Computed example of a mutant assay.
Amino acid sequence: MTTVILAEKPSQARSYVEAFKNSTKKEGYFSVSDPVLANETFITYGFGHLVELATPEKYDQKYKRWSFSNLPIFPDKYKFIVPRDKKTQFKIVKDLLMKADTIIIATDSDREGENIAWSIMNQAKINLKSKTIKRLWINSLEKDAILNGFKNLKDAWNYYPAYQEAQTRQISDWLVGMNGSPLYTLLLRQSGVRGVYSIGRVQTPTLYMVYQRDQEIKNFKPEPYFEISAEILANRQKFVAKLDPYQRFKDEGSLTSFMEAKDLRIGFREALIKDVLQETKKTASPRLFSLSSLQSAINKRYHASASDVLKAVQALYEAKLLTYPRTDCNYITDQEFNYLFSNLTGYLSLVSN
Rank of each mutant, 00 (worst) to 15 (best):
S119Y: 05
A100P: 01
L187R: 14
Y29M: 02
M121S: 00
L187C: 12
A7Q: 01
K21L: 13
I5L: 05
Q167N: 15
R213E: 04
T327P: 03
F289S: 03
R135E: 01
K151F: 08
A241Q: 08
Y197Q: 01
G192M: 04
R189F: 06
R213F: 02
S172P: 02
L264G: 05
R189K: 07
L187A: 11
K274T: 10
D275Y: 10
K26I: 04
A156G: 06
A106H: 01
D328K: 12
S293V: 03
V276Y: 08
V193Q: 00
R287V: 04
A54K: 03
S191H: 11
L350S: 14
E260N: 14
M1C: 11
S198A: 02
V32M: 08
G180K: 00
K62M: 04
P222W: 04
K320A: 12
V309W: 02
L6G: 01
S140W: 00
I298M: 07
I217K: 00
L344C: 10
A284M: 10
S229N: 11
F268A: 14
Y324N: 00
N179D: 05
L97E: 00
T327M: 09
N115C: 14
T345A: 15
G177E: 02
L141S: 03
K62G: 07
K125H: 09
N139I: 12
E216G: 03
R84N: 13
R201F: 04
G113A: 04
D251T: 01
L277G: 08
I332F: 15
A162C: 07
F337T: 05
K26P: 01
Q247H: 12
D155K: 14
I273K: 10
Y78R: 07
N299P: 02
D60L: 13
L321E: 00
R326I: 08
Y246L: 15
D34G: 06
Q203P: 00
S15E: 09
V4C: 03
Y347N: 10
K77E: 09
N148G: 13
C329I: 15
K125Q: 15
W157R: 13
E252F: 02
K131F: 07
Q167G: 10
A156M: 06
F90W: 05
K99Y: 14
L288P: 01
Q170S: 13
L187M: 14
A145D: 13
T2W: 14
I228L: 05
F289G: 02
Q190T: 11
Y208P: 00
R194I: 10
K262E: 12
L136F: 04
V36D: 01
S352V: 09
Q314N: 12
V93R: 04
K64A: 06
K282G: 09
S191D: 11
A166C: 08
F30V: 02
Q335A: 13
A234D: 10
